[in-house]
Design a protein around this nucleic acid. Structure first.
Lengths: 110, 110
DNA sequence: GGGACTGTTCGATATTATTCGAACGGATTT
DNA sequence: AAATCCGTTCGAATAATATCGAACAGTCCC
């Protein structure tokens, strides 16, 4: 059953901005590989193909898994773009729900 | 072997403020039960006996485990006090290393 | 000292998360 | 249409966490 029949392209699920859960976001960011992905995307939208994991030998299924965790937590937007995918940070939604959180995380060094 | 023979009371290990790791902190806070503990302690030091878990039926070993994760991440200070323990937030260390992070987390609703 | 109170640690089990290969599917290119 | 590129999904194996009871240790009070 479709989640929303009126929506043209179902594609991957993204939680509404109001439904973001703090602990889910913290968990998604608590993995070094995922935090690194978020840092890469923070500067602006990035084609997934040009977004690299810390471990360059990791298979694409692992990369896709991390993207899923970040997307389902509401941190990343993941939309079709050509034959690949465009990743972007949902900063407006995040900042509306948890003001200052992403700024603090992204500003943190190391 | 003692970690530091000149230190009077070894007690439980607490990481130095400079050694705090962001992903470890995010992980520790990503558990709802632990985040609730942090909220209770945020207002001021609390005797561990008066700090309650979300699940009131949880055994003390579970409670102790969560305290350990929070302590080893550098979030909570856990010192002997009478026959119990006094818990306190390491806000100065946290804020020096990751400015604004705890404020954002604690300000978040839900 | 003996008993009650408070927590930590250990060991075993259960739950959850990660990793990776294989299969599949859409979009692009020739 | 076929081949290629790019990524998701599935299933199985592995690794990491959580949970809980039991044993142990310090502190307080009598």
């Amino acid at each position: 059953m479709a989640e929303n029949d009126s929506f043209p392209i179902p594609d991957l699920y993204h939680p509404p901005g109001e439904d973001l859960v703090l602990t889910d976001i913290l968990f998604a960011l608590s993995d070094p590989a995922r935090l690194e992905i978020v840092r890469q995307v923070a500067s602006g939208a990035v084609d997934m193909a040009q977004c690299h994991l810390q471990n360059p030998d990791a298979p694409k299924s692992t990369k896709s898994h991390h993207m899923k965790v970040l997307r389902e937590a509401g941190i990343l937007r993941n939309e079709p773009a050509g034959r690949g995918r465009l990743l972007s940070l949902r900063l407006e939604d995040l900042d509306r729900r948890f003001p200052g959180l992403m700024q603090a995380v992204l500003a943190a060094q190391s």
